[in-house]
Amino acid sequence: MPDHGGHAQRLYRPGDTPVHRLPAHCKLIAVFSFVLIAVATPREAVWAFGLYAALLAGVAALARLPAGFVLRRMLIEVPFVAFALLLPFIAEGEQVRVLGLSLSESGLWGAWNILAKGTLGVAASVLLAATTELRAVLLGLQRLRLPPLLVQIASFMLRYADVISDELRRMRIARESRGFRARGPAQWGVLAKTAGALFIRAYERGERVHLAMLSRGYAGTMPVIDHLTASRAQWAGAVALPAAALAVCVLGWSL
């Protein structure tokens, strides 16, 4: 974990590689186009997905990210692909027998489609998060003209996640100091009240923060202080990934 890494920064792995140095908005564009291209690839072109994976592995190597680091963070995908694993069993259509099980062929293709494209998307996002500080991601989104309100909400989340999880931790310690143990549904009421109290505290803090913002002249928009700029070479570096992916995709459609 990076030394200045709170809970919110665990994804980031500090470094000084060409990938780390690219401006955040270039990387965002690159990842977004890469994902679009991967999704647009015909699912039957299995080899294309292998090439995509190889491209991402290349980026990871360039960013000096260990395979274990990336793979562990990709586990977040697991709950989302559970549905994909059900598809071969519940989909209609022609059945094929695999290991003595009768599976739907279209279901298998559907599952592969979700699994392959989902995994590539998650891997690309993990690479982005591992090489870009959250703060920089937000600046990049701002630079890409994401509605300012959304950027503000996200940056407040980033600022206050630790403050609020700290409050939650203190409330848990206070509960447990008075002998509370969450053993079963009988105690859920207490936990629900904790959640409610936490919400009210967060809401009140929101009001106080708003007052503090008004007091320093806030009039509805955040001033843009940091301007991100990217050189031609940086754009070229960032675009290399989706450009290579696009070539693979075009090949996948034409073969």
Binding site: L158, Y160, Y218, A219
Partner: peptide, 22 residues
């Protein structure tokens, strides 16, 4: 509560907030 006052991601941006609004 300084946590109410300091709402930007870095100290520098927070100190810049007021004058930038001006």
């Amino acid at each position: 509560d300084p946590d109410d006052q300091l709402f930007m991601p870095t100290v520098r941006e927070d100190v810049a907030f007021g004058p930038a609004n001006a």
